Amino acid sequence: MTTTDVPSPLPTRFPADFKPQPRYPGTCCGCGEQSEFPVPFTMLHFGWNTGHGTCPHCGAALHLMLNIKSQHLLSEPHDIYLKRREATG
């Protein structure tokens, strides 16, 4: 048996409305452009509402925080987030 003969554990076709992870709107704090950022189910399942990503428009590294009530992502530059985190210990 070759590797191409091994059946995949994943379905071969997904429904047209299938979304692998939810996407939430957010505004890049660097360029001000609006985008939708994916948030993995596992993060939400375990109650984590923060993460990181990059802006698809300007490429800025961002720290993202999901506002649960408004379902909107808030962003700040990742380097500023790291400095703030180091300062609070």
Rank of each mutant, 00 (worst) to 15 (best):
T12K: 13
K19G: 01
H52R: 05
E76R: 12
R13V: 03
H72T: 11
T88P: 01
S70C: 01
H57F: 13
R84L: 03
A61T: 05
I80A: 07
R23D: 00
L74A: 13
Y81F: 15
T50H: 12
T88W: 11
L62F: 04
L44Q: 10
P15R: 14
E33C: 13
G47C: 03
C58N: 01
N67W: 01
S75R: 07
H63W: 12
M1Y: 08
S75Y: 09
L62Q: 02
P22I: 10
R23H: 00
L73E: 01
T50I: 05
Y24E: 03
P7I: 14
L66N: 04
F37I: 00
T88A: 13
P77W: 06
T54C: 10
N49H: 15
V39R: 06
G26Y: 05
V39F: 15
H52T: 08
Y24I: 00
T4R: 11
I80H: 03
I80T: 08
L62P: 05
G89T: 14
F18T: 05
L74E: 14
E86R: 14
L62R: 02
S75T: 15
K83S: 14
F37Q: 01
T50Q: 06
S8K: 02
C28G: 06
H57G: 03
Q34N: 13
G26K: 06
A61W: 12
H63S: 10
H63N: 09
R13D: 02
Q71N: 05
H78F: 15
H78Q: 06
C28N: 05
K69A: 14
N49E: 04
L10N: 14
V39I: 15
M65N: 11
S75C: 10
M43P: 00
P7D: 10
I68E: 14
G26A: 11
D5F: 12
T3M: 08
S75L: 07
Y24C: 03
R84V: 05
P11V: 14
F37P: 01
C31R: 07
R84N: 11
G89R: 15
R85P: 00
L64R: 05
E76I: 12
P7Q: 12
T3E: 09
T88L: 14
F41D: 09
C28Y: 02
H72Y: 12
